[in-house]
Amino acid sequence: MKILVTGATGFLGHHVISTLVERGVEVVATGRSLSKMKQAPWADAVTLVQMDLDQLPDSLMDQLHHPSHCVHLAWPNLPDYKSETHLNHSLPQSKNFLCKLIDQGIQKILVAGTCFEYGMQEGELSEKFPPRPDNPYGRAKNQLRLELESYLKDKDTDLQWARLFYMYGKGQNPKSLFAQLQKAIQSGCDEFDMSGGQQIRDYLPVEEVAAAIADLICHPTHTGTINVCSGENVPLLDLVKRYLENHNADIKLNLGVFPYPDWEPFKFWGAPHLLEKVRKQR
Rank of each mutant, 00 (worst) to 15 (best):
A179E: 07
V25D: 08
K108S: 03
Q160V: 14
D62N: 13
F192S: 01
V228G: 07
K241G: 02
L125H: 09
Y118V: 01
L164V: 01
A43D: 07
Q39V: 03
G31V: 07
G270A: 12
G13D: 08
P261R: 00
L48R: 04
S187F: 00
V278I: 15
D158P: 01
G231H: 07
D134R: 07
P133K: 02
E207M: 08
L244P: 08
R163T: 06
H222L: 10
V27S: 09
Q121H: 09
L236V: 05
H72A: 03
D156N: 15
F258N: 15
L4P: 07
F116M: 10
G113I: 02
H69M: 03
D215I: 02
Q121N: 14
E208V: 11
P57D: 05
E245S: 14
L110M: 08
G256H: 14
L146A: 11
S195I: 05
R163C: 06
L87A: 04
D134A: 13
A249M: 11
P133F: 02
V234I: 15
H89T: 12
P57L: 06
I3E: 07
H15V: 00
M167T: 00
S18Y: 03
A74G: 02
L91I: 04
H273Y: 15
V71I: 14
L274G: 01
A210C: 05
L98V: 00
S59G: 08
P174C: 09
Y81L: 09
D158E: 13
C218H: 09
R145M: 12
Q93N: 04
D44K: 15
L177R: 04
E191I: 03
L144Y: 04
A112Y: 01
L274V: 06
H65E: 13
G188I: 01
L148T: 08
E264V: 10
L125T: 10
E84H: 06
W42G: 04
Y137C: 00
R32E: 02
N248L: 13
D54Y: 13
Q50A: 15
E149T: 10
A162F: 03
A29L: 12
T85D: 09
